[in-house]
């Protein structure tokens, strides 16, 4: 079974993408999409990506709802800054955060989360020291950001990927 479906999750996602793109559930497209999914799985196998271990569906769901809430909240916050509401002086700057997360997929997920949330931006990550640099638009307290990022996201990502 492993030679036919080396990456079952990636193949399933490819099939779902194919059906979504064609907006159909007809048998012909399911067959065609399965062929694409199989070929995609083999192609991915030939590339030899690092092994991913994904666990805890509950943690994934919790992470998604957390990220969605944070995106909406920081959208409102950045919109207020752009429109000049709020009134106080605003400083932006870089924050250094030491990360315990080492899994490349976990780091990629964290990069997507941080950059998708308006107001924070992933700048660089040093794989040797695990030091992450982010840029924050509305920087009030560095320690506050450090605690938020490590407590909210990194803990859940560590649960999911390690």
């Amino acid at each position: 079974m492993t030679w036919l479906l080396p990456h079952p999750l990636a193949s399933a996602v490819l099939l779902a993408l194919w059906l979504l793109l064609n907006t159909t559930m007809s048998a012909a497209h399911i067959v065609l999409g399965s062929a694409v999914a199989l070929a995609g799985g083999w192609a991915l196998h030939a590339l030899e990506p690092p092994k991913a271990r994904i666990g805890r569906p509950g943690a994934i769901l919790r992470l998604f709802s957390l990220v969605f809430a944070d995106i909406v909240r920081s959208n409102v916050a950045v919109a207020r800054i752009v429109l000049g509401l709020g009134g106080r002086e605003r400083t932006s700057g870089f924050v250094n955060i030491p990360l315990d997360l080492r899994d490349p997929y976990g780091l990629a997920a964290l990069a997507c989360i941080i950059t998708s949330t308006p107001g924070t931006l992933w700048v660089k990550h040093d794989p040797l020291t695990g030091m992450l640099t982010i840029h924050v638009l509305d920087l009030i307290d560095e320690g506050d950001w450090l605690r938020t990022l490590k407590g909210r996201y990194e803990r859940l990502l560590l649960e999911i990927f390690e």
Partner: peptide, 15 residues
């Protein structure tokens, strides 16, 4: 500044 300018367009790409 440039680093501040990168942030607002993410409003359009998310919500």
């Amino acid at each position: 500044t440039f680093y501040a300018r990168v942030h607002p367009p993410t409003l359009g790409t998310t919500l």
